[in-house]
Design a protein around this nucleic acid. Structure first.
Lengths: 212, 212
DNA sequence: GAAGATACGGAGGCACCCTCCGCTTAACAA
DNA sequence: TTGTTAAGCGGAGGGTGCCTCCGTATCTTC
């Protein structure tokens, strides 16, 4: 073996397990109690000692960040799955809706994030990048299928989404956003030249060219 | 006198003074230390006992809120002053710029606000109302003077401003926003069809060099 | 199975939160 | 002015949560 010098042990199983437990507990506790929730409460819910929590996440913000990263990754994976859906436009719409739900369930976390984003622009960059890619892959597919106009960038779409969700303190915001999203998606559609969309969904480039 | 029963004393001078001192101190401390800054530090800087601080502002959020309200009122007053400026368009632009500066100096406070807005939608309503009126008075004047189009509501303008400032964690956001604001204001101007400048009737392009 | 690295838990010291109450002071009446 | 009294003041103190530190327990590797 040529890597004898920096040989790396397999991480201990209990450490991995505990880390995961803390993340899961933190998600629940922060959502319920906001960003000032007690870290000791998180540790207790995770069934670990406070020392363990601090070893894994030296600062409160480290914990926020890890929780959030995980969620962003989940949204990213959702996009991956949706890529195999039949209807590309519907797939995009679903992803956007999931995003709204995501925001909706993050009552406490969103405040925590406002705090964290401020000190870690790296996190902001990471999540923007990740989400842009997710949205981009879905958008591209819809465009490639000739069902959506191609002059809107993923960044724009993401920004619109985020902007819409920005007012999520106001009553009834969620249904309002969902409505606006539908309008938005409709606006993105290639105008209905012909008829229904009940058609086999084989994303072939040939079809795209033909349509154009 | 029939109002003897609910006769109201003049508020004590020291109470008024102390309240003001605490607000001023809080502004400084929160901007520097963020929303988690120690209230005891605020009291110390204000030169009052911790008990006094709590009597005036029972909760941390009450204090945030009071500080913010004061600032909103100051912006409101600024608009009042700008109403007497000669150039209505320039007045509006200046107010918008002041707003950006306002956001810029609120490093810590903005995070605190994110927290407070969440629990007090009344505060959100108050500030929206106040700022909408401020922006509206300036906008109206420019419209009345025939220098700006009349189909943009103060709410829209405010929302655009807020939205632009929303990304104020990213590097270089401030100059970017200022640039976008200029573009925006240019867009709001009544197109110089037959206006002052002797310019060829070339289509569009805000190549207006507005430096007199 | 033994050795050694790695992780665990929670006691303890500290900072800050917030309440409570005896003392001080400003406003008002005479 | 002086007296009365409500209003305000300060800060001690009990409580909670933060974070460090280290003796003990557990896992990985050989």
């Amino acid at each position: 073996m040529d890597d004898q010098t920096d040989q790396i042990r397999k991480p201990r199983a209990d450490a991995v397990r505990n880390r995961e437990r803390v993340l899961e507990a933190a998600k629940v506790v922060f959502n319920a109690g906001g960003p000032e929730a007690s870290l000791e409460a998180v540790a207790k819910r995770a069934g670990v000692g406070i020392g363990t929590l601090y070893r894994h996440f030296p600062t409160r913000e480290d914990l926020f960040e890890a929780v959030y990263r995980r969620e962003v990754e989940q949204l990213s994976e959702l996009a991956e799955q949706l890529k195999t859906a039949k209807d590309p436009v519907d797939a995009l719409r679903r992803w956007l809706r999931s995003n709204v739900e995501f925001v909706a369930t993050k009552k406490g976390m969103s405040a925590a994030l406002a705090l964290t984003f401020q000190s870690s622009s790296e996190l902001a960059a990471f999540s923007m990048d990740r989400l842009t890619k997710a949205i981009g892959s879905l958008l591209d597919r819809a465009v490639a299928a000739g069902q959506m106009r191609g002059d809107v960038s993923p960044e724009d779409l993401l920004r619109a989404l985020v902007g819409m969700c920005y007012m999520h303190d106001q009553p009834g915001w969620q249904s309002s956003v969902l409505r606006m999203l539908d309008v938005f998606v409709d606006g993105l559609r290639v105008q209905p030249v012909a008829k229904a969309k009940a058609r086999a969904a084989k994303p072939t480039k040939a079809a795209v060219k033909r349509k154009r």
